[in-house]
Design a protein around this nucleic acid. Structure first.
Length: 418
RNA sequence: GCCGCCAUCGUCUAGUGGUCUAGGACGCAACCUUCUCAAGGUUGAGAUCGCGGGUCCGACUCCCGCUGGCGGUACCA
């Protein structure tokens, strides 16, 4: 890379809906690249399509970046406020006879024999197009707004963008952009076209085929570390066997030449796993705060988190969660189903056994466990059944934790219930 | 159709001519551990590196062709 210019990249979403996972990945790679190069990462809102404008979309974009802590620098640029600038540049091209008017719009046609090529940073390979294969395109729409092609080039140049990292769906537009740079007499930035993230059906992840927005993943109980880590691994690999990486580690390891060329499929299972790894990695106080943010007005959960037992619960739950929603299920003390007659019989004898063995006061962990083992052995009752009768659940956090949190009465109640 | 990109276990990938009878991770299976379930540990199944030609003493790695997949083909981005 010849230039010593400070790296400056941008994330340029259009406010046409919520940010889906593919866009977030693009934003993230731009961020990683900028940070790893000690460069700048800025945000530009490409609101040049009035028809597709969605109220609140920009707020959601900001909310997403904020959640994932992908901080941009400087002011947000809105293309809709720069119409005059685009118009001036369009006029420039008209004067040069490069652009022409037709049907109320301004168009550009790349000369048939014009060769447009660049070395793409992803895969470090040369990509070239011939003018004859580049469709005639609009740069200024009849409503006075520029198209992406024009606004994008003008802004990237004016804002001093050095590297354009964008999805591979843009590679067929790049010759158009290159041509515009040339016509304006500007030096083009470096281009890196990121491979596309595909859904399970192997087609591009998009809203219409049910792709969730990044914020949907937040409400599904994924934490930012898990999602970011997973996204990074889709299409990038630092080279070794390392999987779990913090944001700082990713920044220090990130190299654009390590980005893969092939598309990848979004595997929720691996996301879940990585999320669970991250949940387990959090300090329990940190996890507690995440849970409080996640369940802001859920009385049951909030009460538990504010209680003196919260630390016990969180430690017990941490290794059993894949997403934050799992916490609710784990600590839910409502019985899952009514006992069968046979189970009632066992429950009754278990209660007698325990009361006889442990007395009426609170049950001490050691003795409690010993008693359960004895009962299991003497009556030949599998521990699985004992766990179920005592906790009211097929599975969940340990009986000793339950004993610490809810005390004896909780078990007595369960064993007595109809 | 045309143009472009891509091609290693089901999935994410390591691999840059010999160390690969292809390594790791997710998922799956079994076992160990164990108060249930997780977590943790061990093991296993799973890829003749899409196919066919080259180049080379030697190809997963380089070249060509084919096939397949994906993307683009809007006064959307």
């Amino acid at each position: 890379m010849e230039s010593l210019k400070k790296v400056k990249v941008r994330f340029a979403p259009s406010p046409t809906g919520s940010l889906h996972i593919g866009s977030v990945r693009t934003a993230f790679f731009n961020y990683l690249f900028a940070k790893s190069q000690k460069g700048e990462f800025i945000l530009r809102i490409e609101d040049t399509d009035q028809k597709r404008f969605v109220q609140g979309a920009e707020e959601e974009i900001l909310e997403t970046l904020n959640w994932l802590t992908l901080e941009y620098s400087g002011e947000i640029v809105h293309q809709s406020e720069r119409l005059k600038i685009y118009k001036e540049h369009v006029d420039l091209l008209i004067d040069k006879k490069i652009a022409f008017e037709k049907d109320g719009a301004v168009w550009v046609k790349v000369p048939e024999d014009k060769k447009l090529e660049w070395v793409d940073l992803v895969g470090n390979k040369k990509i070239s197009f011939l003018g004859k294969d580049v469709d005639e395109f609009v740069i200024l729409k009849s409503d006075g707004f520029p198209t992406y092609h024009l606004a994008n080039v003008v802004d990237d140049h004016l804002m001093g963008i050095t590297h354009v990292l964008r999805g591979e769906e843009w590679t067929t537009s790049t010759p158009k952009h290159l041509y515009l740079y040339e016509c304006f007499g500007w030096e083009a930035p470096f281009f890196a076209h990121l491979p596309i993230i595909l859904g399970a059906d192997k087609s591009k992840l998009s809203k219409r085929h049910g792709a969730k927005s990044a914020l949907d993943y937040r409400s599904d109980g994924y934490i930012k570390e898990g999602l970011l880590n997973f996204l990074a691994l889709l299409g990038w690999n630092p080279g070794g066997d390392k999987e779990q990486m913090s944001l700082e580690e990713m920044i220090s390891l990130f190299k654009i030449e390590d980005v893969n060329t092939a598309n990848s499929i979004f595997d929720v299972k691996k996301l879940e796993w990585l999320n669970s790894v991250w949940i387990r990695s959090l300090e329990s106080k940190d996890l507690e705060n995440r849970l409080k943010d996640f369940y802001p007005k859920n009385n049951e959960v909030t009460k538990l988190l504010d209680s003196s037992s919260s630390n016990i619960i969180i430690k017990a739950a941490a290794s059993r969660m894949r997403v934050l929603w799992d916490f609710e299920k784990l600590v839910d003390i409502n019985k899952e189903r009514v006992f069968t007659n046979e189970e009632k019989e066992i429950a009754k004898s278990l209660l007698e056994f325990l009361v006889n063995d442990l007395g009426d006061s609170d049950w001490q962990d050691e003795k409690f466990l010993a008693a359960l083992k004895n009962f299991s052995k003497e009556k030949n009752v599998p521990f699985k059944i004992i766990y179920f009768l005592l906790s009211g659940k097929e599975q969940g956090i340990g009986l000793l934790e339950l004993n610490q949190i809810y005390k004896k009465d909780f078990f007595v109640n369960n064993l007595n219930s109809e």
